[in-house]
């Protein structure tokens, strides 16, 4: 019953989202992009929020996802360009890369983990950058025709807009393309997956690792394997996100693989709140809103972003959502504590 309510609310939220942001200057295309990028942030959150390791190299999975998807469509199988194939190959490839790199990085902690993931991401960046014949070098891959989505009985062109219905202050239904519906469905699946995962024994072990690595080892968990699994899942989600972004934009460039991109995921997740299900969505949405809407009003939007980021780290270590969420718990604990104190007094 609780599950039904949860999913009903999630779906309702996703349906309303592109219209709700309209009056504050948002637009349907932005909603689509926010959802796509949020998937990668959620993957990153699995690492920082649950496994407690800071990856500074998520851009490699994001960028590779985009490159593999676009290359599948334009170079590997141009004759049989297929949307599902592009997604599948990207996720498979990125997962394999994540497993390979993960095997090496999971042994490290803290700053060493961050630096090693950064080093691998830089390697991937330069390989892609220099492999001009395949990747287009600095120009990247441009002007790919994204294939329609085959559904067996029919196939859907995701760039088709919905029929025109005037929604007053909330814009027009035709602002929205099928892309949004598709990405929203993917988002529901990712949320369901993430929720199940973090509530399973796997999630609990990860949290235990974060809290106290030595004790977890002592209890008998093979920490490396859990961390590796988390790294691979985060990689796969990030690859999926990159692939969707690539197919949505129909282009990608080496920028998708840079340290800046990796840093963005860090900012999104930390601002929204790690260790929470919807924190990454909130953080990604908030910062991308700054970047896309507030940027029209002031050039200082990135300064606002930086100040917001520092303020969150200093004042709200759990992120915006993490802090909001924990508040009632603490209050409850405080109530119990004070109740106990009262009972002690004669």
């Amino acid at each position: 019953m609780k599950d039904v309510r949860f999913y009903a609310l999630t779906v309702a939220g996703l349906v309303l989202f592109p219209f709700v942001i309209h009056p504050i200057g948002g637009y349907a295309g932005l909603a689509t992009q926010i959802l796509i990028v949020s998937i990668a942030t959620m993957g990153f959150n699995l690492l920082l929020g649950y496994a407690g390791v800071l990856s500074y190299g998520q851009a490699m999975f994001y960028g590779l996802g985009a490159y593999v998807a676009l290359l599948t469509v334009s170079k590997f199988f141009p004759e049989h360009a297929n949307f599902w194939l592009a997604l599948l190959l990207s996720i498979a490839f990125v997962t394999i890369v994540a497993l390979a790199i993960g095997t090496l990085v999971v042994r490290l902690y803290g700053i060493y983990f961050a630096l090693l993931t950064l080093a691998f991401a830089q390697m991937v960046f330069f390989v892609v950058f220099k492999w001009t014949g395949l990747t287009g070098g600095d120009d990247g891959i441009q002007g790919v025709t994204a294939p329609t989505v085959p559904l067996g009985f029919t196939s859907i062109d995701l760039t088709t807009p919905f029929p025109a219905v005037d929604l007053g202050p909330f814009g027009n239904l035709s602002d929205l393309h099928y892309w949004y519906a598709f990405v929203a469905i993917v988002m529901v699946l990712v949320i369901a997956f993430f929720r199940t995962l973090t509530r399973s024994q796997f999630g609990e072990v990860l949290s235990a690792i974060r809290e106290n690595e030595e004790r977890s080892t002592f209890v008998g968990f093979d920490i490396s394997r859990y961390k590796l699994a988390a790294f691979a899942i985060a990689g796969a989600l990030t690859g999926l996100s990159g692939a969707l972004r690539g197919l949505y934009e129909t282009s990608t460039a080496p920028d998708s693989l840079t340290v800046d991109t990796s840093g963005n995921f860090v900012i999104y997740a930390v601002v929204g709140g790690v260790q929470t299900l919807f924190g990454p969505l909130l953080g990604t949405g908030l910062i991308m809103y700054l970047q896309n809407v507030v940027s029209a009003k002031t050039d200082a939007w990135r300064l606002i972003e930086g100040v917001l980021f520092v303020a969150v780290i200093v004042f709200l270590p759990g992120g915006i959502l993490g802090t909001l969420k924990r508040k009632p718990k603490r209050t409850a604990r405080a109530i119990v504590a004070s109740a106990l104190r009262t009972s002690e007094t004669p």
Binding site: V53, G110, L303
Partner: peptide, 18 residues
Amino acid sequence: EPTAQILVTFGVAIVVEE
């Protein structure tokens, strides 16, 4: 933890740059 230290220096770096 060192992760938090990295984050705060990263944030300050952005603020300074911007």
